[in-house]
């Protein structure tokens, strides 16, 4: 259904060309919202939508934007989309919006957006840009979900707010690892993910 190239555009960012662990983009929010799984999921979805839409819009405008002021044009498009998403979240998921606090606004300065707009949308057709945006959004969301999964499971013994570690374990002396809730552990976890990812993809280097 999809040609080889479009397939690569969509699926490459999930693994080989992952925005977080390979391109090193969008680290700030990836680390800060991953204490629990739910905000991480919401953040992943929000970023995916915004990257995909802004990629399409910039790609449609790419021939009319003057080179010198392109960054400001890109920022305004992104800021408008982020404002929309933030208002929607405040209306329909207020508690999650409060948990994410400034990090929703910080999607504007998320490097994934600027990186993809500069590197892809400015030179490619809208349809390819949409796929590239979706692929990078999912690649970002996957890392967020992996980090949040371990932090919530080990840090508070629950997933998506439901307790998964049985009470009998606690009775037997199991304790939640408070360290996992600390900001420092997010960095170390991402470091370990990069380690694993590079060991697995070694032959391609």
């Amino acid at each position: 259904m999809l040609s080889q190239k479009t397939k690569e555009t969509l699926l490459g960012p999930l693994n080989v060309n992952n925005p977080v662990v390979v391109q090193v983009l969008g680290i700030c929010s990836a680390l800060a919202v991953t204490v629990q799984l739910k905000p991480a999921l919401v953040m992943g979805i929000a970023v995916t939508i915004i990257v995909a839409l802004s990629n399409v819009i910039i790609s449609l405008l790419r021939n009319t934007i003057p080179m010198r002021i392109r960054i400001i044009v890109q920022l305004v498009v992104v800021a408008a989309l982020v404002t929309l998403v933030s208002e929607v979240l405040k209306a329909f998921a207020y508690d999650v919006a409060m948990q994410l606090s400034v990090y929703i606004g910080l999607i504007i300065t998320n490097c994934i957006l600027m990186g993809r707009l500069e590197a892809f949308a400015m030179t490619n057709k809208p349809w390819d840009s949409l796929l590239d945006g979706l692929g990078n959004g999912f690649g970002y969301a996957i890392i967020l979900i992996i980090v949040a999964f371990f932090r919530e499971l080990l840090g508070s013994g629950s997933l998506l707010g439901y307790q998964v570690i049985p009470d009998s374990w606690y009775a037997a002396g199991y304790e939640n690892c408070g360290m996992m809730m600390m900001p420092a552990m997010a960095l170390i976890l991402v470091g370990c993910i990069i380690w694993a990812h590079r060991s697995l993809n070694k032959e391609e280097k």
């Binding site: 900001p183 420092a184 960095l187 170390i188 470091g191 990069i194 380690w195 070694k202």
Partner: peptide, 20 residues
């Protein structure tokens, strides 16, 4: 596989711990 980015992340993690 840890060279470059990986070890930098872990270093920052340890520094963050110290700053805690």
């Amino acid at each position: 596989p840890l060279q470059g980015l990986g070890i930098t992340f872990i270093t920052v993690g340890l520094m963050a711990m110290a700053f805690m």
